[in-house]
């Protein structure tokens, strides 16, 4: 269950955003739609615990993230939220497998190499486990990023424009992967996008107006 209540955010000495209250059932899939500049990314970062709101509450499975700060928020984020960004970034000194292990380590979860291997297999990048991320194609990187977001079986998966750079076929595939994998760990999935192709695929939608 993900809920927000009267969420407001202010950039230092700049714009203030008010966000609509949302309520997403555990395991549900949602689209967050909006034009550029509507505060989509800010909303996503608030939900992901990357930013702290000026006021209001963000409750994930009963914990109000707005009340958390510093290392406690870092830990909570690592443990309970998986985030997929538009462009996949990795620690380039580490292999694909080590990047996933690092995600477990930083979340304070014991490293489970069996789970890492299985997850990569499921996303069809199992044979890349010992490769460096920058040796992978963009599509493969995206899959590894999804695997990394899933590795700690989070309650919430946030995806920021995961399909905007992809052609129709890959767009379809990534959407399928995301929904399927979110369902496999029973996570709430929230996709932030302005990609019109997704509108017909996911019925639960939140619209941000600028």
């Amino acid at each position: 269950m993900l809920q927000t209540d009267q969420l407001k955010f202010a950039y230092t000495g700049g714009d203030t955003f008010s966000f609509p209250d949302i309520s997403c059932e555990r395991g549900a899939h949602w689209l967050l739609l909006g034009q550029s500049g509507s505060g989509k990314t800010t909303f996503l970062h608030l939900l992901g615990g990357l930013l702290s709101p000026k006021s209001g509450a963000i409750r994930l499975e009963g914990t109000d993230m707005a009340q958390l700060s510093g290392p406690a928020l870092d830990r909570f984020r690592g443990r309970h939220i998986g985030i997929i960004f538009q462009k996949a970034h990795f620690v380039n000194a580490l292999t694909v497998g080590e990047n996933l292990a690092l995600a477990q380590e930083l979340a304070g979860v014991p490293v489970d190499n069996g789970r890492i291997a299985k997850l990569l297999d499921r996303l069809n990048v199992g044979q890349k486990i010992h490769r460096k991320p920058d040796r992978l194609s963009v599509g493969e990187q995206q899959r590894v990023a999804i695997a990394r977001a899933l590795v700690n079986s989070p309650e919430l998966i946030l995806a920021d424009e995961p399909t905007s750079a992809l052609d129709d076929e890959n767009c379809e595939q990534v959407l399928h992967l995301l929904t399927e994998q979110a369902a496999s760990v029973k996570a709430t999935l929230l996709i932030v996008t302005h990609d019109g192709r997704l509108k017909d695929k996911i019925p639960n939608q939140i619209r941000l107006d600028s």
């Binding site: 992901g48 990357l50 510093g70 290392p71 870092d74 830990r75 984020r77 690592g78 443990r79 985030i83 970034h89 990795f90 620690v91 380039n92 690092l102 995600a103 930083l106 979340a107 304070g108 990394r148």
Partner: peptide, 17 residues
Amino acid sequence: RKYELAIMRTLGASPGK
């Protein structure tokens, strides 16, 4: 490494780490 440092933060690393 600015992106990988930010990614490490989202994965739960504190600034101290």
